[in-house]
């Protein structure tokens, strides 16, 4: 649904003079307050998620991957059941404990009696891991395809561009959903590697693949225009071999384009991952992610809205920070590339 979010105008190539663009960008970024703020927020989130096992052990004092449906905890000297059966009227329904705002069950429990706060941190690890790994896959694939298409031209370009166009026209989420459904119902064996249905590799690969067209197209455009630019033409005129031109002139330029995409792609991937997990075709239990926790919370929306609220807020914060960072990185690295 955020197709447009990634449409970037292929910027015209321009020879850079003086400082290396990376260095200059770094200088600009280090003076950008918004960028620094976003970076700090991100780091806090990442560190908190990395500290998940410590939180579970010392603060939550429970295993967030084990159902705890019959247990109870002590709050202010009073014993409270984690799953509280209704005692009024007909006695229908069982409600998990709500936010205690103490160490244990700070944000309450989900319908398995597990500590939501601890799961939030563990889920964040997966959400961040999936989005970064998928970003990496996406950028590598997109660069390969985009550079091949742009640099070699001819029928390679024809074929690749057509494929990208077809994928472009198909709704991303529907593509992701169909891939997930088919892949989830079987174990994939690729030579010695066996990817079982519960593996995190599945959402990573799926999310990594679906956005490739959105990056590959601008990369191709960039390479195309670079190929015709003066300095490349001059280099060719001097008889420098093509592979050297590719490595020395084209690759660094494309890399700048790709770096601009990293934060935005991560943001997009977090949202996509959570959507897939929300539809229960992303991360599979017992693993958690922010999306699966929202899904758990959907069934408790009326009684314990915190289960769905907390992971949503975590997503919004992270994605917001990534987007702010993305804007700043783009402005710093490539002021002419308009972000949409």
């Amino acid at each position: 649904m955020t197709d447009a979010a990634l449409t970037v105008n292929p910027a015209e190539p321009k020879p850079r003079v003086g400082q290396s663009p990376m260095r200059r960008a770094w200088l600009i970024l280090s003076r950008d307050k918004a960028a620094i703020g976003a970076f700090v927020v991100l780091m806090v989130i990442v560190l908190a998620c990395l500290a998940a096992p410590l939180y579970a052990k010392y603060v939550a004092k429970s295993d967030p991957f084990r159902s705890n449906l019959s247990g109870s905890i002590e709050i202010d000297g009073k014993a409270e059941k984690i799953m509280q059966a209704s005692t009024t009227g007909l006695g229908l329904g069982v409600t998990p404990i709500g936010p205690t705002w103490h160490g244990q069950y700070m944000l309450g429990a989900d319908n398995q009696g597990r500590d939501v706060a601890a799961r939030l941190l563990y889920g964040g690890r997966n959400s961040l891991l999936i989005s970064s790994a998928a970003t990496l896959i996406c950028l590598v694939l997109a660069a390969t395809i985009g550079i091949s298409a742009g640099f070699f031209g001819g029928w390679v370009d024809m074929v690749l561009s057509r494929i990208l166009e077809v994928l472009w026209a198909f709704p991303v989420y529907l593509l992701a959903i169909s891939l997930s459904i088919v892949l989830l119902s079987q174990t994939i064996v690729l030579g010695p590697i066996e990817i079982s249905s519960g593996s995190l590799a599945l959402p990573i690969v799926i999310i990594g693949i679906i956005f490739v067209p959105y990056i590959a197209r601008p990369v191709r455009g960039r390479v195309l225009s670079l190929r015709e630019s003066e300095f490349v033409l001059a280099a060719r005129g001097l008889g420098i071999p093509r592979w050297r031109i590719l490595i020395k002139d084209i690759l660094p330029n494309v890399t700048t384009t790709l770096i601009v995409y990293i934060p935005i792609m991560m943001a997009l991937n977090i949202v996509t991952e959570s959507a897939l997990s929300f539809l229960s075709i992303g991360v599979q239990p017992p693993e958690a992610s922010w999306g699966t926790i929202i899904q758990d919370g959907q069934g408790l929306l009326y009684t314990r809205p915190m289960v769905a609220l907390a992971p949503g807020i975590a997503i919004v914060l992270t994605v917001l920070a990534l987007n702010v960072l993305g804007d700043s990185v783009r402005d710093a690295l490539d002021p002419r590339t308009k972000m949409r």
Binding site: S86, T88, G89, L90, G91, L92, G93, V94, T95, N111, G299, L300, L301, Y302, T303, R304
Partner: peptide, 19 residues
């Protein structure tokens, strides 16, 4: 009925619930 509505039904609508 969804799980998070059961308590409400059992208390406020007890005479309309048949188990």
């Amino acid at each position: 009925p969804p799980a998070d509505r059961l308590n409400e039904l059992g208390t406020q609508y007890a005479d309309q619930v048949h188990v």
